[in-house]
């Protein structure tokens, strides 16, 4: 899995502390150096790594450590908390409200997994007996409507789209309008992939957002993205009000750290993770249990299951 190697290296660095008889500043520094280099190798943003390093050090009280009391736990705790902190925007994700339309717009880079995650998201709520539906406002990508249509049909979710209308703003507006009238509760708007280097694509995204007035904008991020992640995520966040993040392709074996940095850049909580191409490969995300799994500490929260 993505990040498995990172988790292993951090855990290893922490273990090496327990075998030491003297824990002095040098030992802590060595451990932090190893952890930092693990984070850097997995593409975590350089600035984030250095602030994590500083913060962990501040958390660890060397004098307490010297007495040998619970050293292992104290160090583990400090690293654990700081990793959580990195993924914690200090903000709750949007909670859809029953009995009224909640418009959720999906945005992200090309090929990040928006269309797939849209369906997974719809199915997740449908299974919890919400009335969900999908709008395909991607008029750019070849076969985009067919893809969404086939997904929606497989999952038995109502959908809206057009083979002839070229204006994504109009489709989004019409689709949302229609589903609101039908009394749907979660109306998901899928959009084309885009990137910050092309201003017109970002304008289009802003126009769609203005037309459908989404209650939440979900930024879909491929977990294998490298160092470019941070800048792209920042640009999306600046262009529209991203409120949640879905991290996809965690079943791959890329390094994953770039995505973690991007999450920090959007200062929005991760709500779900995608772990495969099938609709069921989707889990609700909880920071503490994710980090704990990452470090091989077991699933403390037990909240990972959808």
């Amino acid at each position: 899995m993505v990040l498995a190697e990172l988790g292993g290296r951090i855990a290893q660095a922490m273990r090496s502390m327990t075998s030491k008889t003297v824990i002095d500043e040098e030992a802590v520094d060595n451990m932090l150096k190893e952890i930092s280099s693990a984070l850097l190798s997995s593409d975590v943003n350089v600035k984030l790594v250095s602030s994590l390093r500083k913060n962990v050090k501040n958390r660890i009280n060397l004098e307490d450590l010297a007495t040998g009391l619970n050293r292992r736990r104290m160090i583990q705790q400090a690293v654990f908390e700081e990793l959580c902190e990195m993924l914690n925007p200090g903000k709750k994700p949007y909670q859809p409200k029953k009995g009224k339309p909640n418009v959720i717009m999906f945005v992200g880079l090309q090929g990040s997994g928006k269309t797939t995650s849209c369906t997974k998201y719809a199915l997740h709520y449908q299974r919890k007996s919400w009335k969900t539906c999908l709008v395909c406002s991607d008029t750019f990508r070849a076969g985009a409507f067919d893809q969404l249509k086939q997904n929606a049909t497989k999952a038995r979710i109502p959908f809206y789209g057009s083979y002839t209308e070229r204006d994504p703003v109009k489709i989004a507006r019409d689709g949302v309008e229609m589903f609101k009238k039908e009394g749907q509760e979660i109306i998901i708007v899928d959009t084309s992939g885009r990137h910050k280097q092309e201003a017109s694509l970002f304008e289009e995204m802003q126009q769609i957002a203005a037309a459908v007035e989404p209650d939440d904008i979900v930024f879909v991020l491929d977990s294998s993205i490298g160092q470019a992640a941070h800048d792209q995520a920042t640009a999306f966040k600046e262009a529209v009000s991203v409120g949640s993040v879905i991290m996809t392709k965690l079943d791959g074996h890329a390094k994953g750290g770039g995505a973690l940095s991007a999450v920090a850049a959007t200062s929005s909580p991760i709500v779900f993770i995608g772990t495969g191409e099938h609709f069921d490969d989707f889990e609700t995300f909880e920071v503490r249990s994710f980090v704990s799994r990452l470090l091989g500490l077991g699933d403390v929260g037990g909240l990972m299951n959808a």
Binding site: Q110, G226, A228, K255
Partner: peptide, 23 residues
């Protein structure tokens, strides 16, 4: 993908980098 830092693929003869415009 040009943005990505991934491991080596198997059984290939040539590489094509994509999305060079996004990085």
């Amino acid at each position: 993908e040009t943005a990505y830092g991934q491991g080596p693929p198997r059984l290939i003869d040539g590489i094509m980098l994509t999305k060079f415009d996004t990085i």
